[in-house]
Computed example of a mutant assay.
Amino acid sequence: MPIDATQPYDHGNIFARILRGELPARIVHEDEWAIAFHDINPQAPVHILVVPRGPYVSWDDFSARADAEEIAGFIRAVGAVARAHGLVAPGYRLLANVGGHGGQEVPHLHVHLFGGAPLGPMLAR
């Protein structure tokens, strides 16, 4: 069910629970700014979610409340994951769904890294 990205942060969301170690995940990267793990329902040969550690609902929330060091750390984590999985040279897709119209289902900012094969058009026509 798509969410309203303007709602307050829900500390019980699935990514918050993964960040606290309450739920398992196949983690591929951890640092002080982010955690990255394989999606449980992959849509490409490589499908990894990168999640900032802070309690942010959306890109809007993150860009308004996170400090510059946290923003830079999260973006660097995304790049580190792409490099570590050999996605840079062949190419990959980076996607963030925001709010109901964007199809966001978990009310915690996250980006999807898709790769490992040609991905086709960005949107179904």
Rank of each mutant, 00 (worst) to 15 (best):
I3E: 01
D4N: 14
Q7G: 11
Q7W: 10
Q7I: 06
D10W: 01
D10G: 03
H11F: 07
A16T: 12
R17Y: 07
L19Q: 11
R20H: 13
R20A: 15
G21A: 07
L23M: 10
P24H: 10
P24R: 12
A25T: 11
R26I: 09
I27C: 14
H29I: 05
E32C: 04
E32Y: 01
I35K: 00
A36Q: 06
A36C: 12
F37A: 00
H38L: 07
I40T: 13
I40L: 13
I40F: 03
P42T: 04
P42H: 02
Q43D: 07
A44N: 11
A44H: 10
P45K: 06
V46C: 08
H47Y: 15
H47G: 10
P52Y: 01
P52R: 01
R53P: 08
G54H: 02
G54C: 05
Y56N: 03
V57K: 00
D61L: 03
A64N: 08
A64D: 10
A64F: 05
R65F: 06
R65L: 13
D67M: 04
D67H: 13
D67E: 12
D67A: 04
E69G: 15
A72D: 15
A72E: 14
G73T: 08
A77N: 08
V78I: 15
A80M: 07
V81Y: 04
V81T: 10
A82G: 08
R83Q: 13
A84C: 13
H85L: 12
H85E: 09
H85V: 08
G86Y: 07
G86R: 02
V88F: 00
P90C: 06
P90W: 08
G91H: 12
G91S: 10
Y92W: 11
Y92M: 12
L94W: 06
A96D: 03
N97E: 13
G99A: 10
G100K: 05
G100F: 08
G100V: 01
G103F: 11
E105M: 13
V106Q: 00
V106P: 02
V106A: 00
H108M: 05
H108E: 05
L109Y: 02
H110V: 02
H112D: 09
H112N: 11
H112G: 11
P118E: 07
L119Q: 07
G120M: 04
P121W: 02
L123C: 12
L123N: 14
L123A: 13
A124H: 14
